[in-house]
Amino acid sequence: MGFASVLLAPFAYPFMVRGLVAAVAVGAVCAVVGTYVVLRGMAFFGDALAHSILPGVAVGYLVHRGARGPLLAWALGTAVLTALGIGAVSKRGELKEDTAIGIVFAGMFALGIALISTVRGYAVDLTHFLFGNVLAVSPGDLWLTLGMGGAVILTVVAFYKEFLVISFDPTFAATLRLRTGAFRYLLLVLIALTVVISLKTVGVALVLAMLVTPAATAYLLARRLPRMMALAAAVGALSGVAGLYLSFYAGIASGAAIVLVATALFLIALVLAPRRGLLWRRRSRAG
């Protein structure tokens, strides 16, 4: 089997083509939004949000009996509500933010598992929600993913300078009369949207990796934010493609394969990155 046929073989199947397009889109969108997750230290929030959408997915699953379409709408509703809820709880300041997030996160996740477990033979479906199944992406799912992903990216680009200044220096942003609170909620909603479109590809348990790992890789390599976003998107998309091949040929679960590739790329950057990499630091210490 020649190299070209190794590359092309998986795409004899239409579901593989859809899976590939979805993996690339999700990888890129997660990475761009993930740039702010990394820079603002919101990794725990992102993970919590991902797990919290499970009850929404479960209700959609119970109400619509196997019909996959409305599932994303239920997930989206739950995600946005959770994001705004966590935002409101942590703003009050009675509890520390990570405690508030932890309570909401674990409670919602448990509710989701409880709901799904009312269905006989639920384990298979639960596994799909937790770890994704990129090969089950329907044409309708794909269009929804591309549309929502495009909207997320457009929003990030349109409010680039506002998100930049609010993330870098919030007090200064307040003196500019920027609506810091509104932009903070907008960012939470963008993260929620991103988590929802990642549901099929990597699942709720692993979406954190797609938010954080490519963005962290880019952080090690870039000196300016636009470059960091572009690099993160490239790393995310590449992880999607390479992960799908790994999944196809090694028979590994697709979501896990994508995340493993992203992790490997991060480790390479961690060692080799100019200025911030381990080798560079060791050399500059020695010299």
């Binding site: 300078k161 200044v165 870098f168 220096d169 200064f172 000196r223 300016r224 934010l225 960091m228």
Partner: peptide
């Protein structure tokens, strides 16, 4: 990831 010029542009 911002340069000096980026910060002043803020």
């Amino acid at each position: 990831p911002v340069t000096v010029r980026d910060v002043v542009m803020m």
